[in-house]
Write a protein that binds this DNA or RNA. Structure first.
Lengths: 135, 135
DNA sequence: TATTGTTATACTCTATAACTATA
DNA sequence: TATAGTTATAGAGTATAACAATA
């Protein structure tokens, strides 16, 4: 079962990645944007912790987003070491559009191709996958 | 729900990828080895189709596996254009060892951390994920 | 002409190592 | 000393473009 899951994960991620990159914003970038939308502005170290990658990796992603104008860095009011990363209006607008235009492959497929019972099965499995991901 | 799934997929794959690479054989390479073990020898184009990547991408993976001695190319008996890619004895041995040593992160976590009921939920969800992956 | 395999090249994602600035 | 941010560099994974050989 673990094998089947692993193979399936690989296939799925490739597909989601390709679909996500189609509008110029990659999967990692999307993940960071969504984190900022959910949790508000935060630091690179905190983002790295949430995404389970190294700060250096997250910084590369944030740099790409900043170049596109979707996030901005501002100095922390009291701690001179920190830079707070926040969504810009443009970043918020991008996420809004993505939602509005059907979001993406997964949401579309899940509603079109799955019966309510199947959707329920999937909904029950997601927290389990999350636990696997969180180790 | 699609959002949650997408985020979870990203986290999971990063983790599996890191764990898989620990013994020198990466996730993509493992996926190709398993395909060959299941389906027997095949061509680059067919592998690419199965993995849902371009032939060029699969060729890079196969080259890496060939350098490690896990696969070998032999000319197709009748079609001069094709090269058949097959597991070597060494490749088969590698897969066998992986299985024997607990396979990997996922199998271990799934048996240690999940109740039978949870394992059942996950088992029911995997074919659904597979359908998503197969588009 | 179509298909198979390939090389060249580039970009994303992630990592390790090494550094600076601030606490 | 510890933490936050960063740059430099490298390797995996994938893509597009262009090409040779064979059908």
């Amino acid at each position: 079962m673990a094998e089947e899951l692993q193979l399936t994960l690989g296939l799925l991620v490739r597909q989601v990645r390709a679909a996500s990159a189609a509008d110029g914003v990659t999967l990692s970038q999307t993940s960071v944007l969504k984190h900022l939308a959910r949790e508000g502005s935060t630091t690179a170290v905190e983002l790295a912790r949430a995404e389970k990658v190294r700060p250096q990796s997250v910084i590369a992603t944030v740099n790409a987003l900043q170049e596109q104008g979707f996030v901005a860095r501002t100095p922390h009011p009291t701690d001179g070491r920190q830079l707070l990363i926040a969504l810009t209006a443009q970043g918020r607008e991008f996420l809004r559009k993505r939602q509005a235009t059907g979001l993406g492959l997964l949401a579309q497929l899940m509603t079109e191709r799955f019966t309510p019972a199947e959707q329920q099965t999937l909904a029950a499995a997601i927290p389990l996958l999350r636990r696997l991901a969180e180790h």
